[in-house]
Simulated assay, not measured.
Amino acid sequence: MIPAAFDYVRPSTVEEAVRALADAGEDAKVLAGGQSLLPVLRMRLAAPTVLVDLGRVPELRGVREDGDNLVIGAMTTHYDVSRDHLVQDHASLIARATETVADPQVRHRGTFGGSLAHADPAGDLLAPALALGAVMVVEGPAGRRDVPASEFFVDYFTTSLSPDELLVAVKVPKHTGWLSHYEKFNRVAQAWSIVAVGVSLQVSGGKIADARIGLTNMASVPVRAVGVEQALIGQQAGADVLRAAAEHAAEGTSPGTDGNGDAEYRSQLAKVLTGRALTMAVGG
């Protein structure tokens, strides 16, 4: 199917992009990597009057250090994020989750910020960003503002971004030396996760000093597995402790029902995947 007609704007700076969005109003769409937007346009599930292409805004790309944080540009591709040594050293959960996104073609075109702004609850990057306490850097006509991941994701495919705002970067607190693993389950290769779990553990002397665990596709937004975290902190990182903690994975969640499984199935799957992720994270 051919998309509906639209005007095309290709800014070279963030300021130009924000101005284009403000001028276009609510009928504008932002084009990042296009891996989610273009299929929707072709099926005419969206019909924007203006398309703002961020492909030529260099300041939106790259990874850098800023004190205790990493700053990941919103237009940095999944491939570049997963291979960046700063991400691997200081936010390994982000690197591991990004490696699982779709297929190599999508990872070379899709962008880190685009995935987060799309806010698909089955997307692989939302839960790790939430678990690590990421902060979204948003720019609009009124300037820049920081939005914690816990406030950024509002509902299915919905964020706190206003129509005239852009996600320009993501600040991720450093978790240097933490152990991590991302475990997902899907029925066919490259499909969206039915459920996935991101685990990041700070282990010292065999004891779990801190734990950050995010769940993918267990609610309309990414959620923290708080019950698991509380069961782990202060405990020895042994098999029995990990297994018992994983039983709390579904607490406080509200998984949906679809053709891939019902809520009960997803709840059980979350427990199993959390157990596997914890075991892999500690090297078991």
Results as ranks from 00 to 15, higher is better:
9 V>S: 04
265 Y>D: 01
219 A>M: 02
14 V>M: 04
51 L>N: 08
77 T>W: 01
148 P>M: 09
200 S>P: 08
32 A>W: 04
145 R>P: 10
264 E>P: 00
82 S>E: 15
75 M>S: 13
67 G>Y: 09
155 D>M: 08
173 P>K: 05
145 R>V: 08
241 V>H: 02
135 V>N: 01
8 Y>E: 10
93 L>C: 11
159 T>S: 04
231 A>Y: 08
269 L>C: 07
132 L>P: 07
18 V>Y: 10
222 P>T: 09
277 A>I: 02
11 P>V: 00
67 G>R: 11
98 T>P: 05
243 R>H: 15
26 E>N: 05
37 L>A: 08
110 G>Q: 03
33 G>N: 10
145 R>G: 12
121 P>E: 06
39 P>Y: 11
213 I>F: 01
261 G>T: 13
103 D>H: 15
132 L>I: 11
34 G>T: 05
239 A>K: 07
99 E>H: 00
205 G>Y: 12
47 A>I: 00
237 A>E: 13
103 D>E: 06
166 L>W: 13
177 G>C: 10
170 V>S: 08
21 L>N: 07
134 A>D: 08
231 A>W: 05
25 G>D: 04
206 G>A: 11
270 A>H: 11
108 H>I: 01
23 D>Q: 14
66 D>V: 14
33 G>P: 08
122 A>I: 00
106 V>R: 03
76 T>A: 05
7 D>Y: 03
155 D>W: 09
141 P>D: 02
5 A>G: 05
226 V>W: 11
249 A>V: 14
75 M>K: 04
212 R>E: 00
115 S>D: 10
111 T>V: 14
120 D>L: 09
84 D>P: 07
119 A>R: 09
116 L>P: 02
71 V>T: 03
208 I>N: 03
49 T>Y: 01
48 P>W: 12
120 D>Y: 06
189 A>K: 13
190 Q>C: 03
